[in-house]
Amino acid sequence: MQVQNQFKGTGVAVITPFTKENAIDFPALGKVIEFLISNRVEYLVLLGTTGETPVLSTSEKTEILQYSYEKIAGRVPVVVGIGGNDTMHLLEDFKLLPLEKAAAVLSAAPYYNKPSQEGIFQHYKMVAESSPKPTILYNVPGRTGRNMSAGTTLRLANEVPNIIGIKEASGDMAQCMQILRDRPEGFLVLSGDDALALPQMACGMEGVISVAANAFPLEFGDMVRACLTNNFKEAKAINDKLIPTYDLMFAENNPAGVKAFMYKMGLINNQLRLPNVPLSHPVFSAIEAWMANNR
């Protein structure tokens, strides 16, 4: 079986719970992992941007991985987020972080530097050639400040053997369709936009790496599974109910939105590390109202 077949369906960009003192809340993390696996998600993505990795130390990242591997115990595949805007420093992370039990790494395009398309290509080429695990690209221009073009994605897909897929979060449907049309056989294309996942899967994407599925793993996963079996009527019915949650989750900040939902569900504290802060009262109240009427 090709390694990329493990990543079809719903992957969850797992949040990092914190105590009220802003330490990592490992018991809550264990509770979240059990909640996700018991609700049938296909795999977990640890240390993604939804996990607030920019404010985690290397030792904290190591602890999260070791604790999570033990809790997951091989029940679902694990993808580890390793990205950054300093290419050489990123390569050091491959040596520092425990990746033996990971099935793949997910690497966000360089942020802030705004490299050219050639710079993005050379960055990913070096990353993939240095990675001990298969590499999934992550294009998220809303965070990085630079879109990775379809041409660059396809060039990487064709020229760099260790690159097996992309999490595409540009929100540009024309770009997504070009990648889906021209990708080499076996190259995995995953949605990185919860609100666009249904139409993107209708165009041929094989799944989603989701934020919303932290809070709604069964519902969101059922929507994705319906898409994968071409049952778009059922998928739309589920997605229609979830649309308000997407708006609320991303109204101010990720992961403040999804953490607010999970706090109301009793899974975690409503705690983030600066510069992120919990949702404002009006948005939090809107989440409370939605939960009261829909749970």
Rank of each mutant, 00 (worst) to 15 (best):
Q2K: 13
Q2V: 10
K8I: 08
T10I: 10
V12Y: 08
A13R: 04
A13L: 15
V14A: 09
V14S: 10
P17Q: 14
F18V: 09
A23Y: 14
I24M: 09
D25I: 02
F26I: 07
L29A: 06
G30V: 03
E34T: 14
S38L: 07
N39P: 00
R40L: 05
V41G: 05
E42K: 10
Y43F: 15
L44V: 12
L47V: 08
G48K: 06
T53Q: 01
P54K: 06
S57C: 11
E63P: 04
S68L: 09
S68Q: 08
Y69K: 14
K71S: 07
A73I: 08
R75L: 04
P77H: 09
V78R: 10
I82T: 05
N85D: 01
T87Y: 11
T87N: 11
L91S: 05
L91H: 06
L91F: 08
K95C: 03
P98V: 10
P98S: 07
L99Y: 08
L99E: 07
E100P: 00
E100L: 09
A103W: 04
A104S: 05
A104D: 06
V105T: 15
V105P: 03
L106D: 01
P110M: 10
K114D: 02
I120C: 03
Q122P: 00
H123Q: 13
Y124H: 12
A128R: 04
E129G: 04
S130D: 13
S130M: 06
K133P: 02
T135Y: 05
R143F: 12
G145P: 06
N147T: 12
A150R: 06
L154E: 07
L154W: 04
L154Y: 11
R155M: 09
E159M: 02
V160S: 03
V160I: 15
N162P: 07
A169E: 06
D172K: 11
D172M: 10
M173H: 09
Q175V: 12
M177S: 11
Q178F: 04
R181K: 15
R183V: 04
R183N: 09
L188M: 15
V189K: 07
D193L: 14
D194W: 04
M201Y: 08
A202P: 00
G204M: 12
M205Y: 11
I209R: 00
V211T: 13
A212I: 11
A215M: 09
F216N: 01
F216I: 05
G221Q: 03
D222F: 05
M223R: 11
V224I: 15
V224M: 13
R225Q: 05
L228T: 05
E234K: 15
E234Q: 15
A237Q: 15
N239H: 15
P244I: 13
T245K: 13
D247Y: 15
M249H: 02
F250S: 02
E252L: 10
E252H: 05
N254T: 15
P255F: 04
K259R: 11
F261P: 01
M262P: 14
Y263Q: 02
G266D: 03
G266R: 07
L267R: 02
N270A: 01
Q271F: 00
N276D: 06
V277S: 13
P278R: 05
H281M: 14
P282D: 02
P282R: 05
V283Y: 03
S285D: 15
A286I: 00
E288R: 02
E288K: 10
W290L: 13
W290P: 06
M291D: 03
M291L: 13
R295W: 03
